[in-house]
Structures are given as C-alpha cells and as structure tokens.
C-alpha cells in the first residue's frame, strides 16, 4: 500500500523565521504548523523540581476553532489534548539526546489548522521535522501513521483488510490505531488504540502500520535532505 506522497503530503521546514525550528505538514486535509523553541534555560518555577538529569520536553497543542467540520472551541484543559501532549513529550524524550542539555527545556508548540484524521500521527511527524530544523540531536526520526481495519469487530477476521492512513470519516467508523516508530526497523515507540477490535486483527494492523511508518520516514528524510541542500546552496551563493 504505497502512500501517494507527491500530491497527498506537503512538508516544509523553517517556515517560521523567529522560532528555533519550525515546520509545516499536510497529511491529506490535516494541516499542522509546528514551532520548536529551545533548548533553553528552564523557567525557575520551582527551584529543584527537575529531578531528571536531561532536558525537559514541553508540548502544547492548540487546535483552531475552525479546524473541524463544526466550529468548536477547544479548551486547553481538554483531557484528550492533554493526553496527546503527554504522548508527544514522552515519545521524544526517549529519542532526543536530552542528556546533552541538563536543566533545560525544549518547547514544542503545535498548531492544528485543519483536522481530518490521523491527528496524533501528523503532530508527531510535524514535531520531528521542526526538531530537525532546530538542530536538536536525536537518534532517529519519530514517524507515525494510523491503520484501521475494514470489517467491524463483530465480523470474522479473514476478510479484514487493514487500511493505512485514515481520514476523519474513516476514523469515526472503523477501529484504528496510531503507531509511531523510532530507533531503527520495526521498533514501536508510540502505540495508541482507542476503539474496540478483536485481538487477532492487531498483528496485521501493526505490521501495515510499521510499513507505512517506513514510507513516511523516507518521505520526511527526503524533505530534510532537500531543505539541507537548499540551505547549503544559499550559503555558497
């Protein structure tokens, strides 16, 4: 199942000049701007609270009111958003070399302009690009995508055909999961599933998801390299 990367996804680096790192990512109709600030000195909220030796990663997600089909205000205290923020922070804290920046904070801010499924996956991909742009050392890209299962959970497992990269409508109807990889082949960093599904379906769904992650990784890598070449050319000229 190839992802049609040419027309379907748009990824850019260094879109915001003032931020340390920034990116813009479209996955289908899901559109996200990500900015990264830091690593910089932690604000002294509570003197000795930082027990971990490495940098602390803070994530904030703001979902625009106009991003969905219905106009809706998304509060910052929405538990679903807070859970996504936690997921993104902890996914990157194991991948970034945080130990190089003791007593520092890296702030990832994600702005969701339009949402049409695969929100968490798109957020993770956008954050990876912005962190690369910011020059924070990391062991590997964190890439994520969603997979769904076509047959409903009541049906038998044989005809279930896994789908890759779901849009908003598909997410409402089908059982799906978000899988994120980092650190080489088939290493699962993030795995979130929120819908009921038979245990037998999982294996196929995860393996299709890992395959999708590999494709997205290649795509992001291409974007990063092209951006690097452009930057180098600008320096030479």
């Amino acid at each position: 199942m190839p992802l049609d990367s040419s027309s379907y996804s748009i990824a850019q680096l260094s879109t915001q000049a003032a931020a340390d790192g920034s990116s813009y990512l479209e996955m289908g109709l899901t559109k996200i701007i990500c900015t990264v600030h830091g690593p910089r000195e932690s604000p002294t909220r509570s003197g000795s609270s930082s027990q971990s030796p490495g940098a602390h990663i803070e994530t904030s997600i703001s979902i625009a009111g106009f991003s969905g089909t219905d106009r809706k205000r998304h509060g910052r205290n929405d538990k679903r958003t807070q859970e996504m923020q936690h997921t993104i922070s902890s996914a990157f804290s194991s991948t970034l070399f945080t130990h190089l920046y003791p007593h520092s904070t890296i702030t990832i801010s994600l702005h969701v302009l339009s949402q049409d499924g695969s929100l968490l996956a798109a957020c993770l991909n956008a954050a990876t690009l912005a962190l690369v742009d910011a020059g924070v050392p990391m062991s590997d890209y964190v890439v994520a995508c969603t997979t769904g299962s076509t047959a409903s959970y009541a049906g038998d497992g044989e005809e279930a055909d896994p789908l890759l990269d779901l849009n908003g409508l598909e997410e409402q109807e089908l059982p799906f999961l978000t899988v994120g990889t980092s650190g080489g082949e088939d290493k699962v960093n993030v795995l979130i599933m929120e819908t009921r599904v038979q245990v037998g379906r999982l294996e196929a769904m995860i393996s299709v998801g890992l395959d999708g992650c590999r494709q997205i990784r290649g795509m992001l890598d291409r974007v990063v390299r092209e951006h690097g070449e452009r930057v180098l050319e600008a320096r030479v000229a």
Binding site: D186, V188, L191, I206
Partner: peptide
Amino acid sequence: GEVAQIAKYGGAPVDGLSVL
C-alpha cells in the same frame, strides 16, 4: 479477546512483536 484500548505513550522503543 476484544481489545478495548492499547496505550503506549512513548518511552523506549520496543519490538512490534513484544507488544503483541
């Protein structure tokens, strides 16, 4: 055998098989 949810929030990456 119906899985209601799975949550792995980051942390060190593990094999897909060990999750299964």
